[in-house]
Amino acid sequence: MPDSDRQTPPGPRFDWQADLRLITEAAREAGKVAMAHFGQSPEVWWKNEGRSPVSAADYAANRILEEILRHARPNYGWLSEETDDDPARLSCDTLFVIDPIDGTRAFLAGKDTWCVSVAVVYKGAPVAGILVAPSLGEEFTATIDGPARRNGQDIAVSTAGIEDSLKLASAQDMVASFSPVLRPRIERVEHIPSLAYRLALVADGRIDATLVKKSSHDWDLAAADLILARAGGGITDLDGQPLVYNREEVTHPVLCAASAELLPALLKNISRIPRS
């Protein structure tokens, strides 16, 4: 089931617009904090056995998000890339899912394609989300019961079909996994370091689709997943299953994102990619 087919989660009626206003305020403040470090060579450490950089900017942005959000919603759970995971989140129906700087490598290299990603997740599904890309002057927002917007204007996915030329954001080895019939019509776009921002570009139609390598995390995906869904798209695993958030395991297998119409056809044309 594509994410665009998701309906408002069952249960009491919540004011997700109020949560969107809250996370928008927090993400903007975190963006300001990050921008104060941008281009200033912040201190860098390495995690995940030296494979992933984290900077003083990431930690500073995370702190301001915690201060604002946890004070405003003390009953919500918390999952952030830059906070030690607390298993207590698993007992929370509602939680914040945070990446203080998605695209840290781009940030440290002085490239503009990074963003602050904040989502509210309710019973495994994102219900409010924002991406703030301060260096680009862009904000993407959505709630489960409202439109996807970029800088306040409604956005929609591309109308490209499987028979058209397709702009695809993925590594070359993943493009090679498509069927020989489809491959000649694929135009591979330049690498976009922030996964969240890449999905936002699918949501507003600047690219048609993307393949995502395995081991992406909840915090890379939750806000962008919702924005893409409300723009008429979806992101699923290679079996067409939508993502579930706030599980014990927060990583995901190989994923594909596109418009709701294009996504099933792309999935039928993929082969040779390990599914986990």
Rank of each mutant, 00 (worst) to 15 (best):
N151Q: 09
I144S: 08
A229Y: 01
S165E: 12
A133H: 04
H217T: 14
E139L: 04
L201I: 10
F107Q: 02
L199Q: 05
S135P: 07
S91N: 12
I227D: 07
T159E: 15
R206F: 00
I130D: 04
V116P: 10
D208N: 08
I144A: 11
D173Q: 13
K214N: 11
R206V: 01
T141D: 09
A156R: 14
P126L: 06
R183G: 01
P100L: 10
L221Q: 02
V175Q: 14
K213N: 14
A222Q: 03
E187T: 12
R198T: 12
D208T: 01
S91F: 07
I98A: 02
I186R: 01
G110K: 09
V132H: 12
A224R: 03
G205R: 02
T94E: 11
A119V: 02
A196G: 14
S215H: 15
I144K: 05
I207F: 02
I101G: 02
A156V: 00
K167W: 13
I192C: 12
P134V: 11
G146V: 12
V212I: 14
K214C: 03
K167L: 15
C115K: 06
L136I: 06
V181I: 15
I130K: 03
V157H: 01
D102C: 03
L108Y: 00
L136R: 13
Y122R: 15
D204V: 05
E138G: 00
V132K: 02
D93Y: 07
I207C: 08
G124N: 02
D220G: 03
A109I: 06
Q153I: 10
L182V: 00
D164M: 09
W114K: 00
I162E: 00
L211A: 09
T141R: 14
V175A: 15
L211S: 05
G161K: 13
E187L: 13
A119M: 04
A142T: 04
R150N: 10
K111N: 13
K123G: 05
T141F: 10
S165L: 08
D204S: 11
A176Q: 12
A222T: 01
D218T: 04
L211K: 08
A229P: 00
F178M: 08
L201W: 09
V120C: 07
I144V: 13
G124E: 04
V157I: 10
R198G: 08
A133C: 12
A222G: 01
A109P: 08
G103C: 05
A223Y: 06
R105G: 05
Q172G: 13
I144R: 09
D173E: 15
T159R: 15
V157W: 01
P134K: 12
G103P: 05
V118L: 06
S91A: 15
A203R: 02
V175T: 13
G152V: 11
D220V: 00
N151W: 07
C115D: 12
R185K: 14
I144Y: 04
L131F: 05
K111W: 09
L201E: 11
P126C: 08
V132M: 07
T94F: 04
I162G: 00
L131W: 06
A119K: 03
S117W: 05
Y122M: 07
Q153V: 12
T143M: 02
T113W: 13
L221W: 03
V118K: 06
Q153T: 12
E138C: 04
L195R: 02
P180M: 01
S215M: 15
